[in-house]
Amino acid sequence: MLLPRPLSLTIDKLPVALVQRVVNQAFHRALQQHPDLFDRLGNEANKRFCFAPTDLDFVFLVHPESKFIHTFRKAAQPRADASIAGPMLTLLALLEGRIDGDAVFFSRSLSVTGDMEAMLALRNALDDCSFDLPRDLAAMAGPLALPFRRIAEVIRHRALKGMA
């Protein structure tokens, strides 16, 4: 399921610095909520992972060991050890472990390239982590935390229904 076109066009128009700020906050908040997130990675924590939503013009580079996430325009093509590309909502569903990575791979809805040992370790680490993005990130919305969470849960419900 792709992001609605008007939404992806709007996001694409945002400055990289702004997207980086939001993504960085979300990333570090998620790490606070799940401090053992990268334990399963072992030596693979030193690899650079690229997440490339096919319906957005941004890619996100993650280096677990140094706990950084960096946002780029797609054209920048940052160097990564392993990359995963697919619709944004599919990537988020995988992050939460709501869908099975192998099944999505079999259906050709996502593609993976580069170091598969690292990618598999990351997939398994995320799958064990019990992310719940609406719950985990709601506090970022400050006084609007509750409506943020409710809206995010509705979007997630619809997106997962669309993938079923």
Partner: peptide
């Protein structure tokens, strides 16, 4: 055992 928890649940 190599599959995700979503596979296991379903």
């Amino acid at each position: 055992r190599q599959r995700g928890k979503a596979y296991v649940a379903q």
